[in-house]
Amino acid sequence: MLTKRIIPCLDIRDKKVTKGVKFKNNIVLGDPVELASKYYDEGCDELVFYDITASAEGRPIDIEMVQEVAHAIRIPFSVGGGISNIEDMSRVLLAGAEKVSVNSLAVKNPDIIAEGAKAFGSQCIVLGMDPIAVDKPECPSGYEITVRGFREYTGIDALEWAKKAVDLGIGEIVVNSVDADGTRNGFEIGLTRMIAENVSVPVVASGGGGCSAHLAKVFTDAHADAAIIAGMIHTGEYTIPQIKNELVELGIPIRQKW
């Protein structure tokens, strides 16, 4: 049986892993390679890295870091932030990343999805989306896509955007709820389920994970294929084996041996 993936997210700022709430109040957690190795040893199923300052600083993604991570771990990882064209995607994938994640770039230039899928295969191209709950006629799903670290509203309906991205060839969608992000009060079930029900590709829930029960709920009630966690493990409050054991007890299919 295909298991549900637990994916730690490492936000990178100035070559360090940081954690903030709603992209603010960042605190330094440690070295990316050391943390990646630790989570790999603990049995995480995949990792995701966001170079969160690359776009703002107008520089490409830190390829050296991607290479170092690729040397350290033998499980898939995806990389996002600072991707502005096909060449950047190619560099990240050749450095050893399994997938590359696009967010604001794809909103600005949706064709990048089709170009990336054609060049490297759909399975390599992940759409990151940051939807926020709104009550606007132009967003009938009730969620609007934001970009640039939640700072900018786009007027694009979240569900329409997810469907369009799949038509363009995206291989996976990370649904990061702006409202739930950093709250650790649970994933946004309705939003995640709405996307998962309406697209053919795997959906990764993100934002709000605070305990194992939150993960169990997003897997069973929202049918997420995977979930991203950050604060709950970065703080040391939970370890990955502990989360996995609790999920197994809750009847969730989980990879238990590594």
Partner: peptide
């Protein structure tokens, strides 16, 4: 909810002994 592609960790039920599979446990993911 069975998505295409299958993406992630799934178990393998071993059907036969083989030198390349030596030491690999049944149902490894």
């Amino acid at each position: 909810f069975d998505k295409i592609p299958q993406m992630g960790w799934n178990s393998v039920s071993l059907q036969k002994a083989h030198p390349v599979l030596e030491g690999i446990e049944e149902s490894s993911e």
